[in-house]
Simulated scan of single mutants.
Amino acid sequence: MVLVSSGSVAAGSHLFNDKSQQGKSITIKKAMAAAGQSEMMATWDRLFDFPTAQVLLTHADLRNRDRYVSIRNTIEALLSNGILPIVNENDTVTTDKLKVGDNDNLSAMVATAAKADALIICSDIDGLYDENPHINKQAKLLSDVYQINDTIYAMAGGATSDVGTGGMKTKIQAAEKAVSHGIDTYIVNGFKEESFNTLIAGDNPGTHFYPYKKPMLDGVHWMRHTTRVQGELIVSDQYQLEDTELTELLAEDLLSVKGDFSSGDTVLLRKDNGDKLAKVKTNYSSCLLNFVADSDNEDFSEQLDKTHEPILSKQYVALMESK
Rank of each mutant, 00 (worst) to 15 (best):
A33M: 07
A156E: 06
L255W: 05
S6W: 08
K192A: 06
E193K: 14
L79S: 01
Y212I: 07
A251L: 06
P85C: 08
A60N: 09
Y129H: 00
T207W: 06
A34E: 10
M1Q: 10
H225C: 13
N297F: 07
N290A: 10
I234W: 09
V220T: 11
L78R: 02
V317F: 04
V2Y: 12
V110W: 00
Y146Q: 12
S286V: 08
I172Q: 06
Q22D: 12
D203E: 12
L268F: 14
V55I: 11
R67Y: 05
V267W: 02
I148D: 04
N105I: 05
K177Y: 14
R46F: 12
D96R: 01
L233W: 08
Q173H: 11
G158T: 15
E193P: 02
S38Y: 15
V179M: 09
D305E: 10
T266Q: 11
F196I: 05
Q230F: 14
K281P: 04
E248M: 11
D49F: 05
E76P: 02
G231L: 09
I125Y: 06
S70C: 12
S180N: 14
D130V: 01
L304P: 12
I125G: 08
T74R: 05
M168W: 08
T151Q: 11
S322K: 15
F261A: 01
R72C: 01
E248S: 12
L62P: 06
D272G: 02
M168N: 08
V235K: 03
E193V: 14
I135G: 03
M41H: 04
A159L: 11
K99W: 07
D275R: 15
F16H: 10
N73P: 00
S295F: 01
G101Q: 02
H308V: 15
H14G: 04
D296P: 07
V292A: 01
E302H: 13
H59S: 09
A113S: 08
K323Y: 10
V220P: 04
E232H: 07
S262V: 10
E232A: 04
L246G: 11
A318K: 12
D91V: 04
N290M: 13
K271V: 05
Q240F: 05
K169E: 09
A113R: 05
M109V: 02
A35H: 05
D299R: 08
L199M: 06
L62N: 00
V100L: 03
L289A: 04
D294Y: 12
N90V: 04
I83H: 06
N88P: 00
K314P: 09
F291P: 04
V235Y: 01
L3F: 12
L246N: 03
R46Q: 14
D218C: 09
D305Y: 00
V145C: 06
K19R: 15
T58R: 06
Y316G: 03
S6V: 13
A174S: 06
Q37V: 05
E194A: 10
Q54Y: 00
R224V: 00
L79C: 01
N197W: 07
I135F: 03
L98H: 11
